[in-house]
Computed example of a mutant assay.
Amino acid sequence: MAARAGLGDTDTVPVRMDRAQLFEAVTSGCTGLISRIALSYEADPALRRELVQDILLAIWVALPAWRGDAALRTFVASIAQKRSISHVTRRAREPRQVELPDDLQSAAPPPDEIAMDKDMKQQLVASIQLLPIPQREAIVLCFEGFSYGEVGEILGISTNAAMLRCQRAKTALRAIMERKS
Rank of each mutant, 00 (worst) to 15 (best):
L141Q: 03
A80Q: 02
L130G: 07
E137H: 08
H87F: 15
Q135N: 08
A92S: 11
H87W: 15
V88Y: 01
E113H: 11
V88T: 08
P101T: 09
Q105H: 14
P132E: 12
E99H: 13
T89C: 06
D102A: 15
W66L: 07
K121P: 02
Q123I: 04
R90D: 06
I128R: 03
I79D: 00
M116N: 13
L63A: 08
I114D: 08
Q97P: 03
D112K: 02
P101S: 12
K82G: 00
P132Q: 10
A107D: 12
A65C: 06
E99M: 12
P111T: 08
A62V: 04
R136Y: 03
L63H: 01
D102V: 12
P101C: 08
L100W: 11
A126I: 04
S86C: 07
L100R: 07
P95Q: 14
I139G: 02
M116V: 15
R67W: 06
V98A: 10
T74P: 00
R83C: 04
R67V: 14
D102T: 07
P109A: 15
S86F: 07
P110S: 14
K118S: 14
E137W: 01
H87V: 05
R83G: 02
L72Q: 00
P134Q: 10
P134V: 08
Q81H: 09
A65P: 01
L130T: 13
V140F: 06
R67D: 15
E99W: 13
P111M: 10
P110I: 10
I79G: 02
I128Y: 04
L131Y: 05
S127W: 03
R93W: 06
L100M: 11
Q122R: 01
Q97I: 11
I133T: 10
P64R: 10
P64M: 12
D112P: 00
I114T: 10
R96P: 02
K82I: 00
A115P: 00
L130D: 09
Q135S: 07
